[in-house]
Amino acid sequence: MAAIIEVRNVSKSFETKKGEVKALENINLTVEKGELLCIVGASGSGKTTLFNLIAGFEQPTSGEILLNNEVVTGIHSNATMVFQQYALFPWKTVLENIEFGLKMKKISKKKRREIADEYIKLVSLEGFENSYPKELSGGMKQRVSIARALASDSDILLMDEPFGALDAMTRQIMQEQLVKIHEQSKKTIVFITHSIDEALLLSSRLIIFTSRPGRVKSELINHLPKPRTADVQISKEYLELKSMTWETVQQEVLNQIES
């Protein structure tokens, strides 16, 4: 398989009033085409920062990032981001928000509407097409943000805790939808989550970040059989994987709190 994202020796520090903050330290990471890679790590371990570097919003302090073998030097539209803070345009309706990526691709109005309708159905927001974001709950906003990213149909999706604000039921359904989309479209998805269960359910591979500064602590190939039904989730294999991951993450979270 071909590498679609390559992160090479990347470090990132921020200059703040309190001095230099090291967010990422010497990250090396390769994402294969069609992978669904989950990243787990304590809060503040630099996960969002890594996404910002991949999307070109910021430049690494050292090292480089390649997308389809090209060095990322600035903002580009090859990897669509689902922002942790939704980043919906408050002045656009649900429909207009979802159509935004398509509009940027100069897709005709009629076609835009068709595609948007499809994704509105996918995230169950029928009847809210003409609502403004201020009229939506947090979870509904998050779904709009997901629909907007999916609708734009780019090869790479960078999803930053996309299901964080959803209730358990909706979350489960959205997870199933995502797996389905991934299987059908062969998109490359990098997915940040705090939930180990979610990571185990979705991923083909799992990466655990150390606490700040973020480094790749361990990597895990997820061979759990698909579909990962309720049966799979109570299997011995699943529980072993979960406790192993949990131990690693716990250690890092404790480190984080102590420091």
């Binding site: 999307a55 919003f57 903002i75 539209s77 990897a79 669509t80 981001m81 922002f83 803070q85 980043a87 345009f89 935004f100 990526g101 940027m104 691709k105 734009s152």
Partner: peptide, 14 residues
């Protein structure tokens, strides 16, 4: 204007 919105727009190729 929230910079994240500008980022989001640029991310879609604006």
């Amino acid at each position: 204007v929230n910079p994240i919105l500008i980022k989001a727009a640029r991310n879609f190729g604006a």
